[in-house]
Design a protein around this nucleic acid. Structure first.
Lengths: 220, 220
DNA sequence: GACAGATCTAATGTATACATATATTCCGGA
DNA sequence: TCCGGAATATATGTATACATTAGATCTGTC
């Protein structure tokens, strides 16, 4: 990873650590420790932590530090409820404003995701998924909506990774039907059916949520 | 203003300057200048600017600085479209989750806003309006939704202040009917009619937008 | 006079030293 | 043993000095 700008480097590095579940909920992220492990001074690390707090990935106690927010069934419900609606809006908006190039980009993703030869690694799938959701956010043509989409997408991914790590064996990925659902959304966007695109996206996110949390009621 | 925490102090001070239209769109906010005028070092000022960029109040060019984003009819449209939908969600959510205390708080606001004796200053009205919108955001019971509401509310207020300053004489505040619309939203929340509360809130924000921009098509 | 390149300047980016506050630990008395 | 408060340690909060770079200015050639 190039370090041309230490603040950005620190930001992506720390966000990476969070998304990889390198910290448990409640753990504090110490400026000095992170600075040492990243080979920087505290200054850019501190700046990056400030961004992450502002964006809701971390919480902060004054004069105490930044810590990983609690994960809970209630929090997950809030996150996914919001993501459903926000990304639903984005998909509907994209159906109105996406250019032909944008749509071609989405179609290429969907095609790759179909994975007829079975050559995609799990990491590839995650990468395509990210490109799909953030792509639609971008194509909504509303920079504020895009901003919210990015945020809630990453915030929900904390749960995706979290449950993935702890309950790997209980999740049947083949039942997620993600590629098919993505393809349907893209088709609606291509047909410029904004309402339909929004509803399909909402359905997609809800079904992801239900699949992840179906067997985990005990966390409530 | 108490300075117990310089970072917070700098944040609210700078945000205040922005909302008061002390800078034109495109103006750069220099760390050194702000630090001097606030009587602090660059460090907390720099931190505050970082927050404001993360929250979308400012934009930033690397190694150049932070500047006031352009205001434009297109941007305003995006902001208000989003605000309409986000706050609509919040109102609907509040209709389901607000406590009796919360509702009493809103009713008290609406009552004060009715202003039968005509004793409210313009600043009072702004304060009540803020308490109303941010209150409903809080009562939605969804911390992420509340976060988005706060953000888009303040972002839209940039326009409220902007047009207020430049076109004061063209705006007929008595036609805004804000108090009546607020009261209707609260009534729907009290009746626990979530869909109705959401729609009334959307209508309220749209009518505010239309009132502000009706005569300003030339900015498009 | 106009353009290209070198120089200068002023702002951000970074490191470090120091100040301050919180949480813990330790100790003495009931 | 348990409790309260002083001492202490550790991490954040702040100021400042220095490094870097983007943009403006200057200069010389065509």
């Amino acid at each position: 990873m190039a370090k041309e700008n230490f603040e950005e480097f620190a930001y992506t590095a720390i966000l990476g650590l969070i998304l990889e579940n390198r910290f448990k909920p409640g753990d504090f992220l110490f400026e000095t420790e992170l600075a040492n492990s990243l080979g920087l001074s505290r200054t850019p690390v501190r700046h990056a932590l400030g961004q992450l707090v502002a964006e809701g990935f971390l919480e902060k106690k004054k004069k105490k530090g930044c810590y990983i927010p609690d994960v809970s069934a209630r929090d997950a419900q809030q996150v996914f409820f919001l993501r459903e609606n926000i990304e639903g809006m984005a998909a509907a908006s994209a159906a109105r404003f996406a250019t032909d190039n944008d749509i071609a980009f989405l179609k290429a993703l969907v095609e790759k995701e179909a994975n007829p030869d079975g050559t995609l690694s799990k990491l590839d799938v995650l990468e395509i998924n990210k490109a799909f959701h953030l792509g639609i956010a971008r194509f909504s043509g509303n920079r504020y909506l895009e901003h919210y989409c990015r945020h809630i997408f990453w915030r929900s991914n904390v749960y995706v990774f979290f449950y993935d790590n702890y309950y790997r064996e209980h999740i049947d990925y083949s039942k997620l039907k993600t590629p098919v659902q993505h393809a349907r959304v893209v088709a609606a966007i291509e047909n410029r059916s904004d309402e339909k695109a929004g509803n399909l996206m909402k359905f997609h996110i809800r079904s992801t949520y239900e699949m992840l949390f179906m067997k985990l009621q005990h966390l409530a």
